[in-house]
C-alpha cells in the first residue's frame, strides 16, 4: 500500500464518470465511485471494524489499489447515514473497544446494484476497446 493523495469521491455508481488521469500501470487509482462497492463487499461477510475493512480490501485486491485508509471512514459514515450499514461499539479480537459496521438489507441491495452496474460498465468498456470498426465522419 503506497501513498496516494487522491481522496475517493462520494459514491455515485450510476453517474460514475471514469477519469483516467493517472495512466500509470504500477499504482492504480481507484475509479470514482467504486470505493463504496468495495466497502460493501467487505462487509458482506459479516460485521467488521474500519481497520478490518481496510485490511480485507488490501488483501482481496492484492494490494493493487492505492487507497488512503482514512478515506474509508467518511465512506462508512456516509453509508451509515444512507442506511446501508449500521454501526455499534463492540470488542475487537484483542479486546479493545472498536466500532463495528454491519450491512443492512438496504446495504445488501446496494451492493448487488453496484456489482451489476460495474459488470455492465466494465463489459461495455471492454467491448469498445476490442472493437475493430473504423470511425467514420
Amino acid at each position: 500500500m503506497t501513498l496516494n493523495r487522491h481522496e475517493p469521491p462520494a459514491p455515485r455508481s450510476r453517474r460514475a464518470q471514469p477519469k483516467t488521469k493517472g495512466d500509470t500501470v504500477a499504482k492504480m487509482e481507484l475509479l470514482q465511485g467504486t470505493l463504496d462497492g468495495l466497502v460493501l463487499k467487505a462487509l458482506s461477510w459479516g460485521p467488521l471494524h474500519g481497520y478490518a475493512v481496510a485490511r480485507w480490501i488490501r488483501a482481496a485486491s492484492a494490494d493493487v489499489f492505492q487507497i488512503e485508509e482514512g478515506a474509508l471512514y467518511p465512506a462508512l459514515h456516509r453509508m451509515e447515514q444512507k442506511g446501508w450499514v449500521e454501526s455499534d461499539w463492540g470488542l475487537s479480537s484483542n479486546n479493545r473497544r472498536a466500532k463495528f459496521y454491519q450491512l443492512t438489507e438496504k446495504g445488501r441491495n446496494a451492493l448487488e446494484q453496484e456489482q451489476e452496474a460495474w459488470s455492465r460498465y466494465a463489459a461495455a468498456v471492454a467491448q469498445v476497446f476490442a472493437s475493430r470498426q473504423e470511425a467514420t465522419v
Binding site: A71, Y73, R78
Partner: peptide, 17 residues
C-alpha cells in the same frame, strides 16, 4: 502515512456527524 491526512478525515467525519 497509510491512513492519510488524519486532520482532514477527522474534519470530514465531524461535519458528517
Amino acid at each position: 502515512r497509510e491512513f492519510g491526512d488524519v486532520a482532514k478525515y477527522r474534519a470530514q467525519l465531524e461535519s458528517l456527524g
